[in-house]
């Protein structure tokens, strides 16, 4: 450090001093109450109950979407969908959006380097191919007041799904305040699912991250981003599109 650095450091430390540890003690008292005191634990449980009302609704909608898809997807197509050329270029799916069944036309799209295919609801979304990943985002840009809505698909050729999950488990809590335990899933894709959310307001950011094997020692990481109020809209639509995600061998 030169003379200027020493001077700058001293001034910053002078300006940010917590005299007599006032803030430090105050913050600890709040943390102690929130995490360790019995009285607060009860309040926390009540808060959790209030928040948890939202989760069953999301699960119920997701389950509804799953059921509809399992009955209406062309099972014959499933048998041959490893061969890219045999995918239907366009098809109609029925999805349950905010409690209403909706017929939606979806268009076949090829991912980066033709390593996967996915059907996109092109009335609402577009697939943007980037250098390192593909991003499905809203066709019309959202107003500034809305948090990001997107679904990124990225391949990591040399990182196994398990290694990728370990990395994401460290990264996600730095970006979201509540992160649920990683789970193995079979829907909408076969792989691992990580979920994070910050807050319980209408615009609280939500993420679902799916880690799928690329069947060659690497992984595909699919990162959905939306906000709480959009869970039954964009969230359900991403889920439905992801059910059509197939790796091309």
């Amino acid at each position: 450090m030169d003379q200027m650095d020493e001077r700058v450091k001293k001034e910053i430390l002078d300006h940010t001093e917590d005299s007599h540890d006032t803030l430090k003690d105050d913050i600890w008292n709040h943390i102690d109450q929130e995490l360790f005191q019995e009285k607060n634990r009860k309040e926390k449980q009540m808060k959790k109950k209030r928040k948890s009302k939202i989760i069953p609704i999301i699960i119920a909608v997701a389950a509804g979407v799953m059921l509809l898809f399992s009955t209406q997807t062309d099972t014959g197509l499933a048998l041959i969908k490893q061969i890219k050329d045999l995918f239907e270029p366009e098809k109609q799916i029925t999805q349950s959006i905010e409690g209403t069944d909706e017929e939606t036309d979806v268009i076949l799209q090829e991912g980066k380097d033709a390593k996967y295919v996915i059907y996109i609801d092109e009335e609402r979304y577009k697939l943007v191919q980037g250098e390192e990943s593909d991003i499905i985002t809203t066709k019309e840009p959202l107003e500034d007041k809305y948090p990001e809505v997107s679904m990124e698909i990225k391949q990591f050729k040399d990182i196994s799904p398990e290694e990728m999950v370990t990395t994401l488990e460290s990264k996600l809590p730095t970006e979201y305040t509540q992160v649920t335990e990683t789970e193995s899933v079979k829907e909408p894709v076969v792989g691992y699912k990580l979920h994070g959310i910050t807050g319980s307001e209408w615009d609280s950011p939500v993420t679902n991250v799916y880690v799928v094997s690329n069947n060659n020692g690497g992984s595909f990481v699919i990162t959905e981003k939306y906000f709480l109020e959009a869970a039954e809209g964009h969230g359900a639509r991403f889920y439905a599109m992801l059910q059509q995600f197939e790796i091309v061998k």
């Binding site: 910053i12 430390l13 300006h15 940010t16 001093e17 917590d18 803030l23 430090k24 105050d26 913050i27 709040h30 943390i31 929130e34 995490l35 809590p173 305040t177 509540q178």
Partner: peptide, 27 residues
Amino acid sequence: IRTAKAITRNDELAKDAVQEAFIRVYR
């Protein structure tokens, strides 16, 4: 606390940020 005070330029926000950061670390 010093870092949060400097980034937020606001003692109240700094307090909330540090508190929430430690709670997130614990959880």
